[in-house]
């Protein structure tokens, strides 16, 4: 393909967008390097008035919890995303096939749960009493494996693959499984990477099930620890209104500590991003394979 020069306006737009996205990020990072007194006095800014490491020193004074948190988060992200993408791609492939007789029925079946859910109480009863998932890392993985959005996204993508490809394979005597894994999935790396990335991001950020079901400290994902810290502040303020006992300043982490934990939480996910990105930009297209 002929190389074209990208117009300057396009670059300008993206540079502006990049600035709008990066600057707020710096605000958070700089806040984590400011001491809490300065934060109270001057508020958040792009550069810290003077660099201060107390927040990080405090976080890593006792790193066991953070290391455990990382381990759990990485495990649920990797295992969950892998299983989820494989299962969803299989289903999406079947739903995209015109010769599948239960296509309509199953589409409805998969879609319906996004509209109706039974609520927290019934899920909790099932997960704890019938599936015995209390305090198991699997409760952080299994319930979220199917994202209906992503199934439909994959289906839409598979539908766009030319039928001729499948017909040719069928004539060669390939079964549906083989077509699914050797043709459909192979040709869809950009969308699989997209779905995997979206799934990984939401798993990385998930904390709610950990709050409900996990009991032992060493099984808490990192994001839960962050969320707990943030929500505890709300609760302690609420408590101060009702109970005359003094809440000591040490019980409420300063804003710099909150921001530092936030940075610690998102850091690694940003390292993973380029790994997925490889597939976004590769331009692995149907046309390229066909030719």
């Amino acid at each position: 393909m002929k190389k074209e020069k990208t117009s300057l306006i396009v670059h300008l737009i993206f540079i502006l967008l990049a600035i709008a996205c990066v600057v707020p990020f710096f605000i958070v990072i700089s806040a984590s390097f400011t001491n809490s007194q300065d934060l109270a006095l001057y508020g958040f800014s792009i550069l810290p008035p003077k660099v201060d490491f107390t927040a990080y020193a405090y976080l890593f004074e006792n790193p066991r919890q953070i290391i455990n948190g990382y381990a759990v988060t990485i495990f649920i992200t990797v295992a969950g995303t892998f299983l989820s993408v494989v299962f969803m791609a299989m289903a999406a492939y079947a739903l995209a096939r015109q010769n599948f007789k239960f296509r309509k029925l199953l589409t409805g079946y998969i879609f319906f749960p996004t509209l109706f859910n039974g609520g927290l109480v019934s899920s909790y009863i099932i997960n704890t009493q019938y599936l015995h998932l209390t305090d198991s890392v699997w409760v952080l993985i299994l319930p979220g494996l199917v994202n209906v959005f992503h199934v439909f996204m994959l289906r839409t993508f598979f539908k766009q693959l030319p039928d001729g490809l499948f017909d040719a394979a069928m004539i060669d005597g390939a079964g549906e499984w083989r077509i699914c894994f050797t043709i459909a999935i192979r040709l869809s790396k950009p969308v699989l990477a997209t779905v995997a990335f979206l799934g990984a991001l939401s798993r990385w950020n998930s904390w709610y099930n950990a709050m409900l079901y996990i009991r032992s400290e060493e099984k808490y994902p990192l994001q839960y620890l962050l969320q707990r810290m943030m929500n505890n502040i709300q609760e302690l303020l609420n408590q101060m209104e009702h109970v005359p006992s003094m809440v000591s300043a040490a019980d409420i982490p300063g804003e710099n500590l909150r921001m530092a934990l936030l940075v610690v939480c998102i850091g690694p996910m940003m390292i993973f991003f380029p790994f997925f990105q490889k597939y976004f930009t590769k331009g692995m297209t149907v046309g390229a394979v066909k030719g």
């Binding site: 927290l120 909790y124 704890t128 709050m211 409900l212 969320q227 707990r228 505890n232 709300q234 609760e235």
Partner: peptide, 26 residues
């Protein structure tokens, strides 16, 4: 504290085993 209200409500509605708990007007 951040989880207490929700967890206690779920524990009691799902008949989870516990004997004593903190309760209050808030």
């Amino acid at each position: 504290p951040s989880d207490f209200n929700q967890r206690m409500q779920l524990m009691s509605t799902s008949n989870e085993d516990y004997d004593l708990c903190f309760t209050s007007t808030w």
